[in-house]
Design a protein around this nucleic acid. Sequence first.
DNA 1: CCCTGTGAACTGTTTCACAGCA
DNA 2: TGCTGTGAAACAGTTCACAGGG
Lengths: 221, 221
Amino acid sequence: MNRSLDRGAVPDVTVPRLALYLRKLRELRARGVESVSSQALADEVDLNAAQIRKDLSYFGEFGVRGVGYEVGRLIDEITRCLGLDRTWNIIIIGAGQLGTALAWYRGFSQQGFRLVAVFDNAARKIGASYGTGQVRDIAELEHFCEEQRAIGEAVDVALVSVPLAAAQETVDRVAEAGVRAVLNFAPERVVAPPGVLVRQVDLTSELMFLSYHLHSACGES
Amino acid sequence: MNRSLDRGAVPDVTVPRLALYLRKLRELRARGVESVSSQALADEVDLNAAQIRKDLSYFGEFGVRGVGYEVGRLIDEITRCLGLDRTWNIIIIGAGQLGTALAWYRGFSQQGFRLVAVFDNAARKIGASYGTGQVRDIAELEHFCEEQRAIGEAVDVALVSVPLAAAQETVDRVAEAGVRAVLNFAPERVVAPPGVLVRQVDLTSELMFLSYHLHSACGES
DNA sequence: CCCTGTGAACTGTTTCACAGCA
DNA sequence: TGCTGTGAAACAGTTCACAGGG
């Protein structure tokens, strides 16, 4: 029974934790550690050991009773579960400060994400080369996506770093162009077009979370 | 009874939702809307109306039965609950691509966050002026924080955008310098020093979340 | 009557505790 | 024996459903 297919059973909160385990396991491997128990890994990532065992059990049985998990094997399994055993093509819409920072971010390529293009509507930015992607005119978006599909390198994910007012329109447009996942950085919760997965990265909310806790801590202590 | 003080009763997930309500309420006010029911607001933010009423009830009774909520009043109340009725001083550590993008980000000042300085260890970057903050030598960090405290403008939050390997060390150092909240952008879950609130913004995890869902959707449909 | 505020029911997640296997 | 994998218990968060006040 291939557990990785019955997606409905995997809690959403499990997925980001798998990413965390993966990172820590790679670190352990780099340090020469070959085997790890759920307890040892739990200590490293500051979680409950049962949590880790349960998270992994949604996808299969990767450990050996009485022994633990083989680090290399577990890295491979989690990599596969997360869909990181292939390359995902990403584009960035909006070559402002944030878009530019994202384009230069090294972490992407290290995880199997390949930046194939950056789009902007400002003529003076077009043609510049950021990291592995070139800045193109947003007018070419649909054409570019189609071309990529034609060569078997369809655009999988769009990172949207456009101004607030353009966020929804941009998401609708990339969805229309066939992109099925979006990471939106604009502080505006956009409505996901059907069949498109939208994930929000909201700096303002994060700051407000901090201010709330700083504020209420003042009131208490 | 001031509910905003018994913090233990407020679920963590409520706080980012308040930030969302606040944004939508401001938008409604800008559109000239003066009164809103929990149902109408729920439709706007795509949540359950009871959820909104319960979230607000943790902090007090802001509505009028049979009528709804007065938009202006609710904005004020949420602003107060989130601790946004004052200015918070923030610093950025690491003036790389991401740190620079953060420094230029307009959203901060609009929400009552004031950038007071950017720190870096690269001599050639020091002195440059980013947004409202000037780039200073990281060696001056402790001195700067103390000086700010002396003039009653203590540094409240540090945004950490340094390379992976320096993240933990940097967080420990800002904590030592008296900063009580950190927003960490390095893809390394850092250990929070006692009494310091650390919040993680992890682009890599977000991308992996998308790749997981794209991947498992392929297997199904 | 309408809509808020809230106990109670429900759903989802975490943790416990132990059976089962190396 | 030691550690995994997993039902069952505990806990947290969401939604329901209705009492209560304008």
